[in-house]
Design a protein around this nucleic acid. Structure first.
Length: 340
DNA sequence: CTAGGGTTAG
């Protein structure tokens, strides 16, 4: 690690290295630097920041919080946040977003409420962050309150915020409310459609998801890979009669060139098995140029569950010959059924 | 200058 070995002795140098490092992690170099060494740099920079009294600078504090959160050290970020006497909207939003990223809705809502009590004005980004935190079953009761704040706060026509609301309702189990918000939106974008389609599919409403999939195209929106990944979920496709519209979605995917997208193909393999057509699953699988552990596991699972135990096992051997290492899921699907 | 809505495998 070039940064770890670098001679860093002044505060500004350290801070600069922290910024560079966090950008490295953010960008295409993600994963190259171990988060443990980033955390190490981060704590050293933190020391210098404290010594120089810069910890009360909202910009500096925010950068520091972001990097701590990126290392998975939300508690450290919270410490920086709590020490900050004057917090701006970025600090509040970063803290809420940090909890959202780490699936801690109660903590996120605590900070959000504290913000409101202290007279802080949430903006659209703050709402995106808090809604993300509440996008889970326990978050519904808080999500409804935030919905009211958003309606009163003048964010009724903000497409990202309204989309985040649709997502929050869908993920927290209230698909009817998700649909209500969606239907009332005057303006939408592809993400809005993807969220609604994915929500319906996740709740088992495959037919409804499919009709929205058609409707979005009638309205001039072009489905992207996320649209396909969202609609092709097992719950939506395992219901009776799903095979028909799944094939239709498949045809669209091929026409749009997504038959070369590994993730889309993985979803197709999985979903064809679930809707009862191992033959179609096999066809997609065999046509794939690249296959990862998910592709292999999906195909093996499909075979095992459809009474083709021997073929599943020989595929399990083949994947390893091709250098793909099985993981827990691979073993789970292999021994789930049909392997005797 | 800083925070950011959606995404595939028991």
């Amino acid at each position: 690690m070039w940064l770890a070995g670098m001679a860093v002795n002044s505060t500004s140098q350290l801070f600069k290295s922290l910024l560079v490092t966090s950008e490295l992690i953010d960008g295409q170099n993600r994963g190259r630097l171990a988060s443990s060494s980033l955390y190490d740099i981060c704590t050293r920079v933190h020391d210098c920041i404290l010594k120089s009294g810069m910890d009360q600078n909202p910009y500096v504090a925010n950068k520091l919080m972001r990097v701590y959160i990126r290392c998975g050290k939300v508690q450290d970020a919270r410490h920086v946040f709590d020490k900050l006497v004057k917090k701006n909207v970025f600090n509040w939003t970063t803290m809420i977003g940090g909890y959202a990223e780490h699936g801690r809705p109660a903590d996120a809502i605590e900070v959000y409420n504290q913000m409101r009590q202290e007279g802080g004005r949430p903006n659209e980004v703050t709402y995106l962050s808090i809604l993300k935190a509440c996008a889970c079953p326990v978050g519904l009761k808080w999500g409804k309150e935030i919905h009211a704040h958003i309606s009163h706060g003048g964010f009724r026509s903000d497409v990202p915020v309204q989309t985040a609301l649709v997502n929050m309702y869908a993920k927290s189990g209230s698909i009817k409310d998700a649909r209500l918000v969606f239907d009332e939106m005057a303006e939408r974008n592809v993400i809005t459609w993807n969220v609604m389609i994915g929500g319906l599919a996740q709740h088992g409403f495959g037919q409804e998801a499919f009709s929205l999939f058609l409707q979005m195209q009638e309205e001039g929106f072009v489905p992207d890979s996320t649209t396909y990944l969202s609609i092709l979920t097992a719950t939506a496709c395992s219901s009776a009669g799903a095979l028909g519209w799944v094939k239709e979605v498949h045809r669209h995917a091929v026409k749009a060139g997504f038959d070369s997208d590994m993730r889309v193909c993985n979803a197709l393999v999985h979903v064809y098995s679930k809707s009862g057509s191992v033959d179609d699953a096999r066809l997609v699988f065999e046509g794939m140029l690249d296959r990862d552990v998910i592709s292999w596991s999906a195909m093996i699972g499909g075979l095992a569950q459809n009474g083709c135990g021997h073929e599943a096992f020989s595929l399990f051997l083949k994947m390893q010959r091709e250098g793909v290492i099985p993981n827990v899921t691979t073993y789970c699907v292999m021994y789930s059924r049909g392997m005797q």
